[in-house]
């Protein structure tokens, strides 16, 4: 990056800086408000306190919400890896008639926004009395997560040389030991990356959880939305405190995720299945 650039460069970096400054102000406003005693119409609140965190923690039952969020996220990660990785393996290693159809079937839930298939899905889940429970929320969140694991793992498995498996078989390994001794160690980095991305997506997934959750099965995003939607019942600061807790946990997850995944490479790899 040269320090003295063309006017165009200045304009671009200026716009980026403007965007980031406003974004920073936006986040800071929420954080400051969550710590403020009272903040109305002035530049800075007239006193800082952590009382609202305590009250938000108690009034909204945040501990329960966090436990539910953790349960849902971990269950979704584990199940989508269990279902997705074998599928990705078959898609990566075999060419069979109808492979394109299967690929499209796995692409659609990612490309379509959750709102479109979420409404029919929630209707079906209500019909089978699954909606409103933690199990229903997990099932709904699996719908975009399994295809996501399949689509990220397929290119990853493709780059593992099939001759390694053939060599293991030549040396007399059975299917089980080919899997546990040869494939699994090679797959771990890919599975880890996919799991973390699924975790981030699930914790942040609003629509599907919102459509299927009932009292007692809300995740953090949904209870944040509910507390905002019923604003006026409780102090704005308490709502902001929930928002800060949510962003904080998302940021921690993102920092962990970025240690394992390079975002630009991920998209480049994802680009290939697109027509």
């Amino acid at each position: 990056m040269r320090l003295v650039g063309s006017p165009g460069a200045w304009l671009v970096w200026g716009a980026v800086a403007f965007f980031l400054v406003n974004l920073f102000g936006l986040v800071l406003a929420v954080v400051v408000n969550s710590f403020s005693v009272q903040w109305f119409g002035t530049w800075w609140p007239n006193g800082l306190t952590t009382d609202y965190y305590a009250s938000a923690w108690q009034d909204l039952g945040l501990l329960d919400v966090l436990v539910v969020t953790g349960q849902v996220a971990l269950a979704v990660v584990a199940l989508s890896v269990l279902i997705g990785v074998p599928t990705a393996y078959a898609l990566a290693r075999r060419n069979f008639p109808g492979k394109r159809l299967v690929t499209v079937l796995f692409l659609l839930p990612i490309l379509l926004p959750p709102m479109t298939y979420g409404i029919p899905l929630a209707t079906v889940l209500y019909k089978f009395d699954l909606a409103g429970s933690v199990a229903g929320v997990i099932v709904a969140n699996l719908v975009p997560s399994v295809p996501f694991v399949v689509l990220t793992m397929t290119p990853f498995i493709e780059q593992i040389d099939p001759r390694i498996e053939a060599a293991a078989r030549m040396c007399g390994a059975r299917t089980l030991s080919v899997f546990t001794r040869v494939l699994a160690p090679l797959l771990v980095p890919g599975i880890l990356a996919a799991s973390i991305l699924v975790l981030v997506r699930t914790v942040g997934m609003f629509e599907l959880t919102f459509l299927t959750a009932g009292p007692g099965s809300q995740t953090l995003v949904v209870s944040l939305y509910e507390s905002m939607f019923s604003a006026g019942i409780r102090a704005q600061q308490a709502v902001d405190a929930v928002a800060v807790i949510y962003t904080g946990s998302m940021l921690v997850l993102l920092v962990i995720a970025l240690r394992f995944v390079n975002p630009t490479q991920l998209v480049t790899r994802l680009k290939e299945p697109a027509p």
Partner: peptide, 21 residues
Amino acid sequence: TILVVPITLGTVLTAQGLISY
């Protein structure tokens, strides 16, 4: 990374921030 962070904010936090900011 900084440019990607807003993905984690999510719509709900963004809304809350927009209202206060």
